[in-house]
Design a protein around this nucleic acid. Sequence first.
RNA 1: GCGUCGGUGCCCGAGCGGCCCAAGGGAAGGGACUGCAAAUCCCUACAGUCGCGGGUUCAAAUCCCGCCCGGCGCUCCA
Length: 457
Amino acid sequence: MLRFYDTLSREKREFAPRKDGEVSLYACGPTVYDVPHLGHARTALTYDILVRFLRWQGHDVVYVANITDIDDNIIARAQRENSTEPEIAATYEAEYIRQLDRLGIEHPTHRTHATDYIAEMIGVIEVLLERKMAYTLDSGVYFDVSELDDYGALVHRTADDLRETAMARVEADDEKDDPLDFALWKAAKPGEPTWESPWGPGRPGWHIECVAMALGILGPGFDIHGGGSDLAFPHHENERAEAVATGQPFANTWIHSAMINVGGEKMSKSLNNFTTLADILDNHDPRVLRLLMLQTHYRKTMEVNGDALAAAAQALDRFNAFDRSAASAGVVASTPDQAILDEVIEAMNDDLGTPKALATTFETVRAANAAIAANDLELAASLKATLDEVLSVLGLAPAESAGDDEDSAAIDALVAERDEARANKDFETSDRIRDELAAQGIVIEDSPTGATWYRKK
RNA sequence: GCGUCGGUGCCCGAGCGGCCCAAGGGAAGGGACUGCAAAUCCCUACAGUCGCGGGUUCAAAUCCCGCCCGGCGCUCCA
């Protein structure tokens, strides 16, 4: 039985898509005004795994991931760099996608852009005004929180409670009726990009984007809404408020992925303590990051640092090493072991228990290695098939062997030369060759059938 | 302050009432294999107060209460 932890009800709930076998998912993506960091990767990875798992289990998944391509930060950067908002957004969106591609994050079914849904947003705002859930001021259109009875439900606070802290920071000239009210449409300010609307030129508020896109593409009562836990308030709370206020059911399940910390503090742009994704990916096999992240449950805050990456790199090598020894032993994947697969599925069914699934995977690697050592190739072939399947679902499948670059013939020759030296007990020569290759990042592994080599990344 | 999540071995990290003298990974020690390594396998040590103190229960890391500590949210944020 598949269960997810739902932020709204605060419990693990059995997951039943509104339409049998077809899952609708909406996950908030980034505002593209800077390069992606590790935090963006963790969130994207969470939903990537969710989608991969659901598809593996036979569900069709419609996955919408948005890109916020207009907002204060983008405008500010465009002005600072004497550029334009579309240019800034396009640049960083491309970078975001490029890095996610390296991490093996699959593309969503729809990657939507806020600026492509202005008309839909206006439509939603009109409904809200008609239903008297919003009001117009000179500075824009605002959502009227007092008209809603369960505002704050997603973060388990009462409106009064939220209002109290909000009061403390309302600016004196703020003309909103209630400090909790938030903008649906922001009236044009000089120098800012604008769109026409029934309330004059302006641009949309943040939350309305997601409502328009989620409801527009997935429809009312879609299955899952995801995002980073820092978006729960105010973003998701406000999305929910808007959607509910139109009279439509919104997300059935809310999933939030936890933050990445640096030295005990949240990694973020505003704290300027972030490590860019590119930085990590330039220096590590992308699967190292993936493995590291999947070893921690998605709802638990985690720390990413050099030690953790090194440990994950070591762990990942177990998969690689098995693949090498399977290849040299001539083990070809046969039929997966259903009992092991079931164990993995059970772990994943329980709110995406990737750490547990990986534990099973590592146990399988050991068993598979042992099978090869014991020359039980039939067992090894089945375990290899099992591993191939699981690792591919988790996005950890070994990269295609890039063995035929131009140097490989030369290396083959050296390895052969070393084999010969060893046969002649000329260990001085054989060790010299091994050291030379090691200096180039090439590792030699001896086996009864002769030496093989691979590049250490 | 309020809300929320968490505090498990040397490190990371599962577990969420009995199957736990607590998974898995990393690091450590020993053995096998090897000319020596690497890889692999086997074994060992490492949690025994599972933050602290109470309580519930035949039974608690797991439930309840209180306390201490930390993260996140309450402001743009993945």
